[in-house]
Computed example of a mutant assay.
Amino acid sequence: MSVSSEKETSGGLGETIKVVIQALLLALVVRTFLIQPFSIPSGSMMPTLLVGDYLFVSKFSYGFSRHSFPYSIVPFEGRFWAGAPRRGDIVVFKLPRDNSTDYIKRVIGLPGDRVQMKNGALFLNGEEVPRERADDFVQTSPFGQEVRVPAWRETLPNGVTYITLDASPNSLADNTQEFVVPDGHYFMMGDNRDNSADSRVAGSGVGYVPFENLVGKAQMIFFSIDEDTRPWEVWRWPEDVRGERIFDMLQ
C-alpha cells in the first residue's frame, strides 16, 4: 500500500468517527432539551394510554431540571426556563421515592388545591368535578373473553376532558381523605382509577410530586402495538400494530 492510500484510509476513518460523534451529540441534545421517546409499561392510564403505546414527550414544556438530563447527572437545584403545568396535562415525572423511576400520570391538583375522592367522584377545592357516563371500555382477557369496564367522561374546571375507568365502585381509592397540595408540588392521578399507584395511594412512593421532578409533557403517540408483541417483531405488525392510535395527539 502506498503512503498516499494509507493517508486516505486514515482520513476516511477519522471522518466516519467524527460523523458518528456528531450524530451522538445531536441525539443527546434532542433527548435532553427537545423530545424524548417513552413507552407505556402498565395500564394505569387506560384508556387514554395502553400498554404498548410509544410516546413523544416534550422536554421543554416545563423548563429543565436536573431530571431533564440522562440519569439526572447534572447536579443543580430547581428549574430554568420554567413553565408550570396545567390541570389535565399528562406528565412524565421521576418518582419522588427514588428520584430515578419514570412514572406517567395526569396532573389533577395544582399547588394550594384541595383534592378528594368521594364514592368514585373527584372533588377539587370542595366542588365535585363534573362527570358523565361513557360507553364501557371493552378489553379481551388472556382467555379470549370480553371484559367490559365502566367508563366516565370527566371534565376539569379548565375544560380539559378525558375518559376514566372505574372497575370497582367504592374501592379503597374511590374514597380518600382531603389532600392539600403544598407549594411547588402537584397531585397526580391515573385515568384507570382503581388500578393506579398515584398521589392518592399511601405507600405508592408518589405522594405530592415536586415541580423539580417533572420530566416533560406527553404530546403524541407515535407508535402502538399489542402489549404481547415486541416492536422488532415486524412479521406480526400487520395483525398487532394499532394503526388507529398512531399519531394521536394527547391532552
Rank of each mutant, 00 (worst) to 15 (best):
V206L: 02
S196P: 13
R200W: 11
G159A: 09
L172M: 11
V206Y: 01
S196R: 04
S68E: 06
G144C: 11
T176S: 11
M249S: 11
Q145H: 10
K118I: 10
R87V: 01
Y62F: 14
D228I: 01
F211D: 15
R87W: 01
P85S: 03
G159I: 09
A197F: 09
T155L: 05
F143Y: 11
L25S: 11
T161A: 15
P96V: 04
K18R: 15
G78K: 12
R236P: 00
H185P: 00
T16Q: 13
F93N: 04
V115N: 03
E154A: 07
Y103V: 00
L28V: 08
L50I: 08
S141M: 09
F93L: 11
F179G: 03
D102S: 14
L28T: 14
I17P: 00
E127L: 13
T155E: 07
P96K: 12
D135C: 04
W235S: 15
S68G: 13
N213F: 06
G88F: 06
D53R: 05
V201D: 05
L55K: 06
V215K: 10
V147E: 15
K18Y: 08
I108E: 02
M46E: 14
N170M: 12
V160G: 00
M188H: 02
A23V: 14
V180R: 00
F179R: 03
Y186N: 04
R200Y: 14
R79S: 11
S44D: 05
F64Q: 07
S44H: 07
R200V: 07
N119T: 01
K59D: 02
S100Y: 09
S199E: 04
N99R: 15
I73F: 15
